[in-house]
Amino acid sequence: MTAIILLFRITLLLYFAATVLFLADVITRRDRIGRYARWVLIGGFALHCATLAAKYVEAGHTPVTSLQEALSFFAWAIVGIYLLFDMRYRLSVLGAFICPLALILMFGGSTAPGVTGPVDPILQSWWFPIHVTLAFLGNAVFAIAFMAGIMYLLQERMLKSKKFSALYYRLPSLETLDNINYKSLTFGFPLMTMGIITGAVWANSAWGGYWRWDPKETWALITWFLYAALLHGRLTVGWRGRRAAIFAIIGFLCLLFTFLGVNLLMSELHSFDAMQGR
């Protein structure tokens, strides 16, 4: 257990260092700092993988049964997806937006309740890891779209008002940001859809019903419709740029509410308490 905590702490520390470096990259506009930041982040991600693997071995199931674990898993997915996007776009400024988010999630996770008691036998089903992994990967891709949306709005505002801050010189072109929005949507939407479907299948095998309209399921569906609308708008009516960015931002806020708000405000099947055997 202590080894896992140590791994977790070092991961947190590396994410913190990467965040500082990414921000320094934006402020000083030195590409070299961005490269260091990337390597530190990759190191952090590797340790994070190790942490999760160790936890999996220890607990015998995918470590997302407490809020702490869920936040950590979410941060892991976000960093992993960012690194994938980074291979294509090479955008350290995106790192300056994504890394703080991952850091906050990790940090929030380290302060959240992390009790793992005896686990409900339904979590032993292997639909469980498939469901949560797909759902979290989808969420992580939408986190990228969210940050790209914020960057788009910032950049658009500067171009329209003709007043440029230091960030302007680091931000990529509007077209690139819009392209990230589109790419995220085409990857995130299928992941999310499959996440919901596998969840329903799992629910059926565990409780004998595909859909129960618990708040989490309802909100997930609302979020899904939002992203479906955006995808549809993009493909048919030519929604792009500003509108797509705003949609991605609203979609992600909705998604965060589904993930956190519902758990904190309402308590049903998906709550972490319910996962523990009690």
Binding site: Q155, L159, Y168, L171, P172, S173, L174, E175, T176
Partner: peptide, 8 residues
């Protein structure tokens, strides 16, 4: 340069 910021 501005065009590059818009269009890449």
């Amino acid at each position: 340069e501005l065009a590059r910021k818009i269009f890449g």
